[in-house]
Design a binder for these strands. Structure first.
Length: 227
DNA sequence: GCATTAACCACAG
DNA sequence: CTGTGGTTAATGC
């Protein structure tokens, strides 16, 4: 499952690691483990001692948290990106979980090594900050989406997000079950089912099981804004 | 009151 | 894991 990585020649090198010196790259290689994960595998789990920063090279991942009543999917993200910085850098335990939703390549990076790069290499640190900023802004959007829109609007928003930010195509296969999509946009699986069917009947999207094609993006945009 | 929205429940593929 | 129908509670004219 684990291989010794060759970071210098990695084709998935992150913007941040491009600023590492040769010496630092060697340190990275010595303090990092690579793994290929199948869909549905946990990368890390809420409540467990956190000791690694994860670099997601490729693949799609859901970040989720066990709330007082039910599961909440916080965000869906794809590589290349780092995972777990907020919960590993300054916290003892993972405050949320990360689970793959498709074939995924990850690197587990020792937190002390990562911390050292941030402290000693300004350009590296700058790239990390940029990524954290983007993530926070995107979460602000989701916050508004979840709290100020009706169910149709929230689902429309999620479909547009998947199209634009994840797949970059109008047709894609839902990475989540209806239930999980509900956990993502704060609704029930029944409502997700019904609304996807409504969109289908209104010729806004084409739904075949988990396969989605967006037919009328303009209308979907309007729905995502107004419900 | 009346309509709309969405959650909850139950049952069936 | 999904889809559907009935019911119910909350909210807004």
């Amino acid at each position: 499952m684990f291989d010794n990585p060759s970071c210098i020649n990695c084709v998935f090198k992150s913007p941040a690691t491009k600023f590492l010196s040769d010496n630092e790259i060697i340190q990275l290689e010595q303090n990092c483990a690579v793994a290929e994960l199948k869909p549905g595998e946990k990368i890390f789990k809420q409540g467990v001692f956190s000791s690694n920063i994860i670099y997601l090279k490729k693949g799609i991942v859901k970040l989720h948290i066990e709330g007082p009543y039910k599961e909440q999917i916080l965000k869906i993200t794809k590589g290349p990106t780092y995972l777990g910085i907020p919960t590993t850098f300054d916290e003892k335990y993972y405050r949320y979980s990360a689970t793959t939703v498709e074939e995924t390549g990850v690197c587990f990076i020792n937190i002390e090594t990562f911390r050292k790069f941030v402290q000693e290499n300004g350009k590296f640190a700058y790239e990390i900050i940029i990524e954290l900023c983007k993530s926070e802004i995107s979460l602000f959007k989701k916050c508004i989406n979840r709290s100020q829109k009706n169910a149709r609007g929230r689902i429309a928003d999620a479909l547009l997000f998947l199209k634009e930010e994840i797949y970059e195509e109008s047709s894609f296969r839902l990475p989540l079950t209806r239930n999980e999509l509900g956990d993502y946009v704060n609704t029930t699986r029944e409502s997700v089912s019904r609304i996807l069917n409504e969109f289908h009947n209104e010729k806004i999207i084409k739904v075949t099981g988990r396969d989605i094609s967006i037919l009328n993006e303009k209308l979907l945009n309007i729905i995502s804004k107004t419900g």
